[in-house]
Amino acid sequence: MAEPARAKPKPTPETQHFWDGTAAGELRLQRCDACAHVYFPPRPFCPSCASRKVSVFKASGKAKLYSYVINHRPAAPGFTPPYAIAVVELDEGPRMMSNILDCPQTPEALVLDMKLEVAFEKLDDKITLPQFRPAKG
């Protein structure tokens, strides 16, 4: 029997552009055309000023480590503990939950405010997850 798989997102009409973006290798955010507020998670209106005129744009993919836990138990299906569950702060402002790849999952290696860059992990033809790794250079 196959190992239980990690929880897989199911896009909705309001979030489809985000998941289309990750599949295409882009981290897409939204910006309000009226007040310039940049926000996440996706929705077709601005949560700051309620304008429905909003645009999707490609984010830089640059971020820093805001906070995290290193989960030991119980582990989520599809994960081998210990693994870090991180919240990263994008250069554009919004924060999002993610994981940190190419880095030991230890308090010594995971330093708050360390610079990160987006990486994409393909789960299947429809879903690619945004992940982050320590920024090069």
Binding site: A7, K10, W19, S67, Y68, A76, F79, Y83
Partner: peptide, 23 residues
């Protein structure tokens, strides 16, 4: 899986309050 939590938190390994509340 199509809730906001299901799309933007569950895929990153949260599994019950102990993995979320201390973040």
């Amino acid at each position: 899986p199509d809730s906001l939590n299901g799309q933007f938190e569950s895929p990153f390994g949260v599994f019950g309050p102990p993995s979320m509340f201390p973040i």
